[in-house]
Design a binder for these strands. Structure first.
Length: 382
DNA sequence: CCAACCGGGGTCTGCCATAGTA
DNA sequence: TACTATGGCAGACCCCGGTTGG
């Protein structure tokens, strides 16, 4: 217990030291852009009161930047009626961080509200992101992918509180890195929302009798960063669905959620139910019992996730190759390989006279290197 | 030595609804 | 009352190799 507390304190301090001082002066560009903004403001102020027309200077600036104005207008029309915007400042800012023209245009096209942010705000937010990412280009690559995650919130304090909160849970800087890379929105959630999700997971650990609910919750978050951008309602519904459909014991459910099940937890419930039904039906039609079907999903949670068509295709392809459904149930992991890969492997094995009924199917569940080594030996023997 | 078990790694947004706010 | 900030939703795998026990 003491050791755990100690590591938490250490992690908080680690977070603090990773915040470089925010700059207290701004580059010359900032003054230039502010001046331009003032000009734009006074030019349009008179007409603004009458009918709130779209800001002509803004439209011209955006087209110079290469922004897809139609797209931007469709997405956030309100931005276009604002009297003061900072499109040039934002573009300048992103450029100074290494973004190219095309990326900048794409960012503003997809999330126009970005141009309402001030230089100071952006720089402050940048430093927060950089406390997690090592380089500017990592930040740019995430913003380029998902502009909204960077620009949607104006609350930098909340972002920092989230960092501290995650650290206080014992998440490492590597964990934060992964969360910000794969689910950047998590840091723009209100602190309260993130706390609710963590509490839900911890309570779930308690209700399953896990002796360390905090570690249980942490484990699920590190296995699946997406959990933090889902609603607690969805997670609850999915856990209930697992419980009802698979009738697991507490320890089985814990194992499921801490393992591959964590990745399945955030699926939309309807999708998961549909998949479960389709695949169960196929297994029943192949003569499986309810217990076998339940065990199949417990052993191989990705079945919830996989597209039914692909999975079904793979099962058919295995059955056609003298592999029995019972063998598959014993070794569902072979379904993780692509249909193409499985087909090729089976073809190669058939060529050397491999008998699945005699030697089993585990040979299919191996890395490329191991499979090829094994195949080489079989060819020699053959 | 080798089959079998098992965990890890990469990586994922863009839109809509609505309460709150100035 | 228009606009902002924030919550929520649908979408849908594959592969590698360390370790261990016989």
């Amino acid at each position: 217990m003491t050791a755990r507390m100690g590591s938490q304190v250490m992690n908080i301090n680690l977070c603090r030291t990773r915040f470089p001082d925010l700059p207290n002066c701004f580059p010359p560009a900032w003054f230039k852009i502010s001046y331009l903004r003032l000009c734009a403001f006074s030019r349009n102020h008179a007409t603004e009161a009458i009918q709130k027309p779209e800001n002509a200077a803004l439209l011209s600036n955006l087209s110079v930047l290469g922004v897809d104005i139609k797209m931007a207008q469709k997405r956030q029309p309100g931005v276009f009626r604002k009297v003061a915007t900072n499109e040039e400042g934002v573009a300048e800012f992103l450029k100074s961080k290494g973004a190219n023209r095309k990326t900048i245009a794409s960012i503003i096209s997809r999330y126009p509200r970005a141009i309402t942010r001030s230089y100071h705000h952006l720089e402050e937010r940048w430093q927060l992101w950089r406390s997690i990412f090592k380089t500017d280009s990592e930040v740019i690559s995430v913003i380029g992918r998902s502009p909204e995650s960077y620009f949607r919130s104006s609350d930098n304090g909340n972002f920092e509180k989230n960092i501290n909160f995650f650290c206080s849970l014992g998440l490492t800087s590597k964990d934060l890195h992964r969360i910000l890379t794969t689910a950047p929105r998590a840091f723009s959630n209100s602190l309260e929302l993130n706390k609710q999700m963590v509490k839900l997971l911890q309570d779930l650990g308690v209700s399953l009798g896990d002796e360390n609910p905090d570690a249980f919750a942490k484990r699920i978050m590190t296995k699946n960063a997406y959990i933090l951008i889902r609603s607690t309602k969805r997670i609850k519904t999915n856990v209930d669905f697992f419980t009802e459909a698979l009738k697991p014991s507490n320890s089985e459910l814990i194992k499921l959620l801490q393992g591959q099940g964590a990745e399945v937890l955030d699926l939309s419930t309807d999708y998961m139910k549909r998949n479960f039904k389709n695949i169960s039906d196929q297994l029943y039609s192949l003569g499986c019992t309810t217990e076998e079907v339940q065990k199949f999903f417990l052993d191989y949670p990705p079945a919830f996730y996989a597209s039914f068509e692909k999975l079904s295709n793979k099962i058919d392809c295995l059955l056609e190759s003298q592999i029995s459904i019972k063998q598959l149930l014993k070794k569902p992991r072979i379904l993780e390989f692509s249909a193409m890969n499985l087909k090729n492997r089976i073809k190669e094995l058939e060529r050397v006279g491999y008998d699945f009924t005699k030697h089993g199917v585990t040979i299919l569940d191996s890395s490329r290197r191991r499979f090829e080594a094994k195949l080489g030996k079989l060819i020699e023997e053959y």
